[in-house]
Amino acid sequence: MDSPGGILALLEADGVVAGYGETDILHGVSVTVDDGEIVTIIGPNGCGKSTLMKTIAGLVKVRSGRVRFRGEDISGAPPERVVGKGLCYVPQAANIFASLSIRENLEMGAFLRKDDYRGRINDMFGLFPDLAQAPGRKAHTLSGGQRQMLAIARALMLDPALLLLDEPSAGLSPAMLDMVFERIAGINATGVAMLLVEHNAREALGMSSRGYVLAGGENRLEDTGPELLANPEISRLYLGGR
């Protein structure tokens, strides 16, 4: 199936059904991401945004529907194979190896690389100077914003084509928040496509080419970023009060 633009989509989730134990959480969710774009998913708490991310990353099994990455069916592939194809994922919580040092976290991010990844680590230190200050520091001693940067840097170690970011701004101070969004835009500018789950919908949609609204495990709405921002209902439900 082709993406709206007519070319093959980078990521294409089509009618995905998934869940935990006996219960389905996602009841047929479809999402596409094209090369180089930022796509944001918003939706109420517990609607299955994180579950969708985990399903794409291979942590949760696809029960029906399919996930394609660069045209290849990756539904049912183990996480380690998905990562190897250039689709890296930053979970919402517990997204760093807390007892490892900063450098060791980055080395783990490069686990699948066969080449010399030291240059890549230095690139990351360039991108996130905070991390470069004490690479030997244990990750659990970092501040919330630094942890988030480490988590993103870890996921970038494999030079992914697509980055899944689950609420990268959760729990950050406003100053930190701007910084994280700035970095995300910067990374995107280097050609990395992003699928973003965000509660700070205004900022996220502002830099996204498209956005999806998820509710109750189903697609509710899909539109370009600016259109969603202009949509009065969306404003009322997800953008107000901030």
């Binding site: 935990y20 134990g21 994180s50 579950t51 991310m53 985990k54 291979g58 942590l59 949760v60 099994k61 183990p78 996480p79 979970p91 919402q92 919580a93 517990a94 689950d166």
Partner: peptide, 9 residues
């Protein structure tokens, strides 16, 4: 664990 029991997201 097998994929479907993953949690902590």
């Amino acid at each position: 664990r097998p994929p479907e029991t993953g949690d902590g997201g």
